[in-house]
Each structure stands twice: as structure tokens, then as C-alpha cells.
Amino acid sequence: MSSAATKVSQSAPEPASAAPGTAEAAAGTAGRVPGPTKPGPRKPATDYADYSLVSAPRPWRWVGTAVVALGLAAVAWSLATNPRWEWDVVGQWFTAQSVVKGLLETLKLTAISGVLGFVLGFILALMRLSASPLLLSVSWTFSWIFRSTPLLVQMLLWYNLGYLYEKISLGIPFTDIRFFEVQTTTLISQFAAAVLGLTLNQAAYSAEIIRGGILSVDQGQLEAAAALGIPAWRRSTRIVLPQAMRAILPTAFNEIIGLVKGTSIVYVLAYSELFYTVQVIYNRTQQVLPLLLVATLWYVVITSVLSVFQYYIERHYSKGAVRTLPLTPLQKARKFFATHAPVRSLR
């Protein structure tokens, strides 16, 4: 559309879609255009191709821009000049070995609970959509319980499982045959309790997200696939899931980003992930705010990286759902420098 706006060569500009400035140009030259009712030979239509365009004045946009810019400058100024932010301390601890180690633990917890949570969530979603009343109600009950108890309570419960059940064993029920038996406290370490708590909680939420995605796919798609003799598993993986992904992804990434920060809750188990590590350090050095800033900045970095992934994965799954794929930021930049004109993606 931008190319149309740079030319004013159309002899009859439509008022609704006219580019800014076109109206002015038309008004200024109205006298030269012969009216349709006047008799006599028509003069050839004026060619406006060589005229330059002047945008309509938009004073309030400038006022708004100025106000916001001023606000941003004030925030930046205070961040830079207020000595209590202690940026030198932030810089000192940002890449300290213990902090990086805590960061890696956070990433590990997120990755493991994220993957396990979504796998379990997928199974729960299928159970929920199944025709068997037992599978359906078990799945419903699971989501109900894990969504209605605070994550903090779940976490402590798993960690203290040894109090409820001293030993965990695998065997044949109602007989004395045991394949193995182990003390609960040795099996449920801090790490295991953390993974267990985060995974089960995550599964309850992702089950609903995945179920919603599957339901959003048109029933006709399944019918068409069945009519073509495509087997059930292939119907799910090739036809339904790729389309469901469009509905699943935005919320799923929300969940994963929530999980990244949710891992900070395992500090109650004294598990040395990022947040706990930072707490340990500031309890020793008393530099509370700078160290909280260190943790915050790392969470921002992780979230930003995830957002980039989200953008490209969503773009991949929008194949066929939009007529033309929107440009990636890179492509936009390239086009900008190629044409020196602001670009808007075509819908």
C-alpha cells in the first residue's frame, strides 16, 4: 500500500483511501479539472506524478511523543544517577560464578518441568477428550486438585512426603512381593520435590491449554481426514495438532515464561536456583536491592530470549493460516533500508 501512497497519478482519487496530502493537492488544483457537465473539448488530465507529497500536520502526536520521551528520560536519568541502585554491585555480581550456577539451575528446572509438564498435559488433554468416563473424570480431577492448591503448598507437601509415607515401594498390590523399596526421604530430594511440584502443577494448566487448542480445530478437518482413510494417530499429528498449535502456542509460552519465574518459589526448599542464590548472597553482604536487580535482569534476559523463540515458532505454525506471512523483523529492517519508506506488513 505504501507504493500507492507515494504516487498521486490517479486521475480520480478516492476520498476514503486517499493518501494524506492527496486531498490537499486535489483541492488546490480543483479549478484546473474540467467539470463533467461543461460542454466543449476536455483538456488532458493533469499528470501529478512529479508533485511532491506533504503529510497532514499532526500536532498532538508530537505533543504525546514529547511527553512520553520526557518521562523516559527522567526514568533513565534516575536509574543512572541515583547511587542507591549500586550499578557497580550489580555488575560485579551479574556474572559471578555462584549466580551463573543458580541461573543454570533455574534453566534446568524450567526445561525439565516444562517438557514433562507439557507431555503429561498432552496425555491429560487426550484423556479429557476421550469417550471413557473414567479417563475423563480422572483427568478432570487432576486438573481440579492441582489448580485449586497453591504451588507453594504442593511443593512443601512433596518435600514432606516422607512424613506421610516412610517408604515407597513397587510391587504387586495385596501381596508381599516387592520389586524395590526405598526410603521416601532419600528418593524425594530437593530437586525431585521441585521437579515433581512444578511438573504436576504445569501439567494441570497445560492440559487445559492443549485441550482448548484441539477443540479449536474444525470438526470438518477430522471428517475429511477420516473420509480419506488417514489413520487416527496420523490424523492427530499431521492434521489436528499443527492447526491446534496456533491456538496453543501463545498461551503455552505464557505458561513457560510464568514457569521460569515460578521456579523462584522452590527457594522454600532451600534449593539453590537463581533466586535462592541471590538471597543467600544478600543475606551475607546486605546489598539487597542490587542483588534483587541481578536476579530480575536475568529473568528479563530469559524471557526476552523465549519471546524471540515464540515469535519464530508461531510464525512457522501460521503457515497457510494467513494469506501472506508477516515479515520477520530482519526482513522488515532490510526492506526499510532498501526503500527508506516505513513498512507495514500486508494482511
Binding site: 474444525d218 470438518g220 478437518q221 471428517e223 475429511a224 481426514a225 477420516a226 473420509a227 480419506l228 482413510g229 488417514i230 489413520p231 492434521i239 499443527p242 492447526q243 505454525y317 503457515k319 497457510g320 493460516a321
Partner: peptide
Amino acid sequence: LKQRTEIGMVFQNFNLFPH
């Protein structure tokens, strides 16, 4: 499914796989 492969069907609203 095997029987269905011998019977083609064309739907009112096409039901092409959009992706």
C-alpha cells in the same frame, strides 16, 4: 479406514487442510 479409501468424498465447505 481401508474401506473408506475406495469411497471418495467431497464436502460442501471443502475441508481442505489449511496448513
